[in-house]
Design a protein around this nucleic acid. Sequence first.
DNA 1: ATTTGATTTAACCAAACAGTCAAATATACA
DNA 2: TGTATATTTGACTGTTTGGTTAAATCAAAT
Lengths: 205, 205
Amino acid sequence: MKNILATEELNTEELILRAAKKIFTHKGFEGARMKDIADEAGINKALLHYYFRSKDKLFESIFDGVLKSFLPQAILILSSELPLFQKIDRISEYYIQSLSKQPDIPIFVLHELSVNPYRLIENIKEHGMDLHLFSQQLQSEIDEGKIRPIKTAHFITNLFALCVFPFIGRPLIMGMMNLNDTEFNSYVLERRQIVTETMIRSLKV
Amino acid sequence: MKNILATEELNTEELILRAAKKIFTHKGFEGARMKDIADEAGINKALLHYYFRSKDKLFESIFDGVLKSFLPQAILILSSELPLFQKIDRISEYYIQSLSKQPDIPIFVLHELSVNPYRLIENIKEHGMDLHLFSQQLQSEIDEGKIRPIKTAHFITNLFALCVFPFIGRPLIMGMMNLNDTEFNSYVLERRQIVTETMIRSLKV
DNA sequence: ATTTGATTTAACCAAACAGTCAAATATACA
DNA sequence: TGTATATTTGACTGTTTGGTTAAATCAAAT
């Protein structure tokens, strides 16, 4: 009988998903080997196909899971009742903190979306990524003269670019700036304030 | 005899390089098939191995070429004698214009660097990516009270994030903002001004 | 015309790969 | 305990892939 009392004990499916996430996010779909995932999970290769019939099926579980754990939070914060500047702070806080723990996610998602853009469509429709409410708030603040005029697309781009780019460009930044891992971590910790400051200053009238 | 008079006639090596660049940048190293590259170039698969002994060799030609055609320009502009704000404008102009013509480059480079970070090291050392001069200029402007204090790493990150992210996040942006190809192109054209404005406003005292 | 060297091809090969299957083992329940 | 069901494995398969090779073709010099 398995030791179901030990809290750190994971069942096989969770073991596979955890291993698959690590390998897929690190190597991408094409670069990942089913053997690598099996080894990482400490199980037999055939067992992967017992739980997830194919590499594609396993990948979609991971990819969908990752999208669902990152995108909806943005919509949630942006569509909330919070003041604009607080939203900026919340987004930057949430994404920089989450991505610090899983720094491979952005490049993984964006690479797979680049190779296979249709993947996103279903997911977006499914979650009803609606930015209308936020667009209205932004326009109100502009109309009231509280911030400078800016289109929603550019606002969103600026905010996410500033939050996410450090993780996407990590090897580039570490190389150009001559940072080691410790120094890079300090740099990332500073980003949260930099992002909100940069965004808010650029919006002030 | 080949028609060497026709200017549009490319020799086989150039044909291969052009095809390989298209396939590699679109699919990544692992996703690219030598057969695909051969087909794209309109030649036989064995001919690839005649000109470039292996997939790795061919890939390195492409990857090095891409790095050399993008990174040095940044160092050149940043290390020049131009005023700070003009440098921002030049960088944003150059990168947004170049990447509009080759939008797959950023995600390609950053994905490959993520899977294989050591690739960059040689290239950076080789080109002497030195940002010391620029750091001094930035510090001078800060000391003279002309701009708000900011570390070089964050300045560079912000500038490149704002320039490059639209291309990295293209499918995401098109999906969330409901843009078609034409609308995305207009959006990219607007980016140049947005980037310089955002950067400069965030730096003003 | 013949030789020489560079270019191109079709056919082939070994390794790596995702995926399969029958047999073995563990688990639950009667 | 015995039996049915769920889980796990080692050995296997067919296909795809990067890479090779020997022969054919072409271009130019002798």
